[in-house]
Design a protein around this nucleic acid. Structure first.
Lengths: 334, 334
DNA sequence: TTGTAGGCGTTATCAG
DNA sequence: CTGATAACGCCTACAA
């Protein structure tokens, strides 16, 4: 591989000049520019990005930490991040945290050790305090799908409260009043915000909120089936159920079908997230769209703007969920 | 950030010695080892991986090219690769090729420019010849889920023919004889191998293969629905259908249900790949497991062995698919 | 076993 | 506008 030195020799100029034409950051006469460019072509010169990094203390890489590499949610997110960054010539180092505190911290450490220029992280287990401390460090950190009050400028998040509101509102609009709710683990900010939205929608229509119609699930399929079972066992009456993510909705659907419900007539089911398989469920799941892909792109833009000084990027920190109407809900019939 | 130089001063030894205890590649007396380690701790020293790379011409990074970042298939694959490599302290740079020749080549170029020690690529659009040429270069290349005869040692692939065989065999075992087949694009080696397996299973039981029971789809949901429509329109008779991937199986299921079939009694459906949503379909899809996660791990091991000289790794180049029985098939009833 | 010194390929600061 | 030259932080013969 040719080096900058050989290029300079062939072009009859100094190292510095070659560097200048590469980086276009200083005036070089047109004549020498051409000489240098010819020499680069002749030698099929490719800059060594590692040497560049060492000299400039810029790795042009951004670290990404997600909970899992598989799963529809993170796939969309990474796709958004990668496409945006790659287009800017930056590369992405991806690793996982598995939603466990130790592993998340470990992953962040790992990315630090790789000299990333910035980190985009989606963490669930780690505390707000830890993150606040983390952001005081030298490497800029951006939080995906998490809102920390003291760190608003570094956050890209979804208005989960609004999502929760929309979900329940859609059911109310169909005439439902007895609406069961399967929430996610309440220590997760997303989960509790969604529940708050649910309560607001009820309150707005003067429908009381009953604890007996609330079940705290685990955001997994089993949480959905167990939740529905719980309500049935308790003999509470309800005509609709909102599950605070699609996984749980699928669990509820399965359980409902196995126990003789005809969907959606006997029971209306609402999901949340609009993951890929929501469209494959039967009946197709009505849900709340979580624009993770867009949010991924946005986090990348945030990095581009703040770290790589790209101008004129339109930054948006908070995203709004939208209702995706499909086939899993029916009008309330007394 | 402390450098090796400061560590050496504090420990009262030379640079070289510090380097040696870091890399454990030369004898250092226990006494000095301890001195150095203490100094490293005291200074919270972290080696600068970029400087290491420049000096050793090893980046400890491996480039991964997949078609898409989202989608169940690639998620599993990347998860396998990343976990294995991360455990070995290597990191993964991921980019995408979108199944288009130009973009795939571009992605590979991009990874080269990042000084990866090796590449693991899943390419679909690029030719065998191109790959053969590519493998002559300096950077070792490994192919995921693709078999090129001249490159066997660099390939990790699935025995697709066997998968196709197993799929059809399972249906035959249930008494079916008129088995329709929706294949994938035949320029894809996977797709044609699967079809060959189908034919072998038929031949083995002296069941003739009819062109009228073959439809070439696109490996997407629409291919499945269009395929089924095609067979129905042609008024050929069949009691079962094998779709050469799960996407198409879901399309067929949807179309079948919308056209009055009761599943699985009126029509048995078989998929291929066992992607995540296969389990969410209704009825749950019987399919052929494609162990992508394991294959991902294996490709990482291959890199570990060949590039990073890790010993005693059990390398397996060809993986066998297995039948996953669920609820989408029924016994043939005349 | 330990130290010395010359790179690795660029960038960036000064002069000129 | 251009050219020397000193970093950047570490690895690795070669010596001692």
């Amino acid at each position: 591989m040719a080096t900058i030195y050989e290029v300079s020799k062939l072009a009859g100029v100094s190292l510095a000049t070659v560097s200048r034409v590469m980086n276009k950051n200083a005036k070089v006469s047109e004549k020498t520019t051409i000489k240098v460019e010819d020499a680069m072509k002749a030698l099929a010169y490719r800059p060594n990005s590692i040497a560049q990094s060492l000299a400039s203390s810029r790795s042009n890489s951004v670290g990404v930490l997600v909970s899992e590499l598989h799963g529809p949610f993170f796939g969309q997110m990474m796709a958004g991040i990668e496409s945006e960054l790659r287009a800017a010539g930056k590369h992405v180092i991806i690793t996982t945290g598995h939603s466990e505190e130790d592993k998340e911290k470990d992953g962040i450490e790992f990315l630090f050790s790789r000299n990333c220029d910035a980190l985009i992280i989606h963490v669930e287990a780690v505390s707000d305090e830890y993150l606040i401390e983390l952001c005081k460090g030298k490497v800029p950190i951006y939080l995906m799908s998490r809102h920390v009050d003291d760190l608003v400028d570094n956050c890209i998040s979804l208005n989960n409260e609004l999502g929760g509101y929309l979900a329940t509102k859609a059911l109310i609009d169909l005439g439902h009043k007895d609406i069961a709710y399967i929430a996610g683990p309440q220590f997760k900010a997303d989960a509790s915000a969604r529940l708050n939205g649910h309560k607001r929608a009820l309150a707005e229509q003067n429908i009381p909120f009953y604890e007996s119609l609330l079940y705290i699930g685990d955001f997994k399929e089993t949480g959905g089936s167990e939740g529905l079972k719980h309500f049935i066992d308790k003999k509470v009456s309800f005509s609709a159920i909102v599950c605070s993510n699609d996984e749980m909705a699928s669990g509820s659907m399965k359980y409902a079908r196995e126990h003789g419900f005809s969907l959606p007539d006997d029971l209306s089911i609402m999901g949340f997230d609009n993951v890929n398989f929501a469209n494959y469920l039967y009946p197709k799941l009505t849900t709340i769209d979580n624009p993770v892909h867009e949010m991924g792109r946005m986090s990348a833009k945030l990095v581009l703007q703040n770290v790589y000084k790209v101008k004129d990027l339109n930054i948006q920190h908070i995203f709004s969920p939208t209702l995706i109407s499909r086939k899993s809900m029916a009008k309330f019939q007394p």
